[in-house]
């Protein structure tokens, strides 16, 4: 919480944000966006939000940048200036942004000071979570315990949202061989899968360790920053690394469309299934303490910890499958034949 470091990182972030939207080349904009995400991740680590920073590092600086580059690869790379009405659109945008900014600045006078321990956000509910989480669930990572146990419904519907996003991408982009009436425009390609030995060798060596690390992140989320989402995204990113260094067809051979959707489904079902199990055993939905009847030799507190581990695994499987599915759909323009 050193304010000099805060201010310097924030000014770099503003410079990156300006550069991202002003640059004329879409590939450069995607890469500067990756740098912007990574600086955000540094800022959040410095503010003390390590779980959020971990998620942003894997999701924003990793998968988001790859999705942008994949989308730019399929379409054109150049940004053409507006043909007419350029000043009007810029003026409208500036006026709207300035008005909104003014409203927000006036509202900002009522905010609590930066990082004061007496702000109302920190006074009412969160002391209960901080002091009671070890006693209730025996999990030291407060963010994981709130995410998976105290606010478990939230996380379940978030997993469902990820699954729905994957389904939406398939619905928009998927083209089968039969109705190929529309012609795919020529995309900007540098090389059609030039097989490079060094990249293939190193990628093949690194991927098992990346996946092992992802499983460690999922399992160790109770004691260190981590959890289901981060581990799932890192697992998906390892497959994307294989797809980039080899051919996408190899990844489609490993994880076909059917198995992707099946795995996504299974992930959400594991989550809801644990909830239903608690319901069948006689407690409320997603009340893990009743699982002590099913798991051997655990008391009510450890049962909550194990229940959390179970749903984290479900979330990781769902997120991994959907990240791979979205990438494959975007990079092959829905046709699943090259990339």
């Amino acid at each position: 919480m050193i304010w000099q470091l805060d201010l310097s990182i924030l000014s770099l972030i503003v410079v990156c944000a300006f550069a991202t939207i002003m640059v004329k080349d879409l590939l450069s904009a995607a890469i500067i966006f990756g740098a912007y995400s990574f600086l955000m991740c540094l800022l959040w680590t410095e503010l003390g939000a390590v779980d959020v920073a971990f998620t942003e590092a894997s999701v924003g600086a990793g998968v988001s940048t790859v999705l942008f580059i994949a989308a730019v690869h399929q379409t054109s790379r150049i940004v053409k200036p507006r043909k007419s009405g350029r000043m009007l659109s810029k003026a409208v945008g500036l006026v709207a942004a300035l008005l909104m900014g003014l409203v927000l600045v006036i509202a900002e006078a009522d905010f609590p000071g930066f990082a004061s321990p007496f702000s109302p956000a920190s006074l009412h509910l969160s002391p209960y979570y901080i002091t009671q989480t070890l006693h209730d669930t025996n999990v030291p990572n407060i963010v994981t315990s709130v995410l998976a146990d105290y606010r478990g419904f939230d996380t379940m519907f978030e997993t469902a949202v990820i699954f729905t996003a994957g389904l939406a991408v398939i619905a928009i982009l998927r083209r089968y061989k039969r109705d190929d009436s529309t012609e795919i425009p020529e995309s900007y390609t540098i090389s059609e899968g030039y097989p490079d030995t060094i990249i293939r060798f190193v990628a093949r060596q690194l991927v098992p360790f990346i996946q092992l690390f992802a499983l460690y992140v999922v399992a160790h989320g109770h004691h260190s920053p981590g959890g289901g989402f981060q581990g799932g995204v890192i697992l998906g990113a390892s497959f994307i690394l294989l797809a980039i260094s080899f051919d996408t067809r190899m990844i489609i051979g490993l994880m076909s469309e059917k198995s992707n959707i099946l795995l996504g489904n299974i992930g959400v079902l594991i989550y809801a299934g644990i909830g239903f199990l608690c319901l069948l055993l006689g407690a409320n939905f997603l009340d893990y303490s009743i699982l002590s009847k099913v798991l051997p030799a655990t008391d009510k507190i450890m049962a909550r910890s194990h229940g959390m581990l179970g749903i984290e695994i479900g979330v990781a499987i769902a997120v991994m499958a959907i990240v791979i599915s979205i990438y494959i759909n975007i990079i092959s323009h829905g046709k699943y034949d090259k990339g």
């Binding site: 540098i190 090389s191 030039y194 490079d196 060094i198 990249i199 190193v202 990628a203 060596q205 690194l206 360790f209």
Partner: peptide, 21 residues
């Protein structure tokens, strides 16, 4: 160790892309 393996490979990939274009 991971950085020592991954970062030169990334540099190699970028230079390869430049050479190809």
């Amino acid at each position: 160790v991971f950085i020592f393996m991954a970062s030169p490979t990334a540099t190699h990939a970028i230079i390869d892309a430049g050479y190809e274009s």
